[in-house]
């Protein structure tokens, strides 16, 4: 909750883009989910200011908009913590040692790594999702370490 209340800067140009794209959507309640997707695509999450705009524009009560927004696990009501890599822990990945990979990386302490539910790439287990959402199949710990190290320290 604290994160949610944190004041966050929204870039003007993103807001302008959002409003102009939103105005192309039909003003009907059925476009609530497409509007959330639009906001998340532009801002990377669905900020309160966008939620208010959506409620106004689609003429849906704010409370109902929030009730719907928060029911979807893939919609983010707070900006993502950046640079995280995810290790899939679906059944097939688990069998190929996903938990072990998570543990080894967590032990190294320098990486931002978390586990994540099935990514539907079970044939290529174990699977990881990189910090920009890209999927990688048949990952090995050594490869992962160099990949993550490169992406998490490369930019600095």
């Amino acid at each position: 909750m604290s994160e949610w209340r944190r004041p966050l800067e929204i870039a003007d140009h993103e807001m302008r883009e959002f409003i102009s794209e939103l105005s192309m959507i039909e003003r009907e309640k059925q476009y609530l989910l497409p509007s959330f997707h639009l906001a998340q695509e532009i801002f990377g999450w669905v900020p309160p200011v966008a939620v208010e705009k959506i409620a106004d524009f689609l003429r849906v009560p704010l409370s109902e908009v929030y009730a719907t927004l928060t029911a979807y696990s893939e919609l983010r009501i707070a900006p993502d913590e950046k640079d995280y890599w995810f290790i899939c822990t679906g059944v097939a990945c688990e069998m190929k040692g996903a938990q072990n990979i998570v543990q080894q990386l967590a032990d190294a302490d320098e990486f931002k790594v978390r586990d994540i539910d099935c990514q539907f790439l079970c044939s290529l287990a174990p699977v990881c999702v990189d910090d920009s959402g890209g999927l990688h199949g048949r990952v090995e710990v050594s490869e992962l370490i160099s990949g993550i190290r490169e992406s998490q320290t490369g930019g600095e």
Binding site: K29, L33, P34, V60, Y72, S73, E74, L75
Partner: peptide, 26 residues
């Protein structure tokens, strides 16, 4: 085309109906 937004329960047919209508996905 409509894009879902997560939730195993969204594969249930009546949940999809609610989702398309813009109601809570239950």
């Amino acid at each position: 085309l409509r894009q879902g937004a997560g939730g195993y329960v969204c594969g249930e047919e009546s949940v999809i109906l609610n989702s398309i209508e813009g109601a809570r996905p239950v």
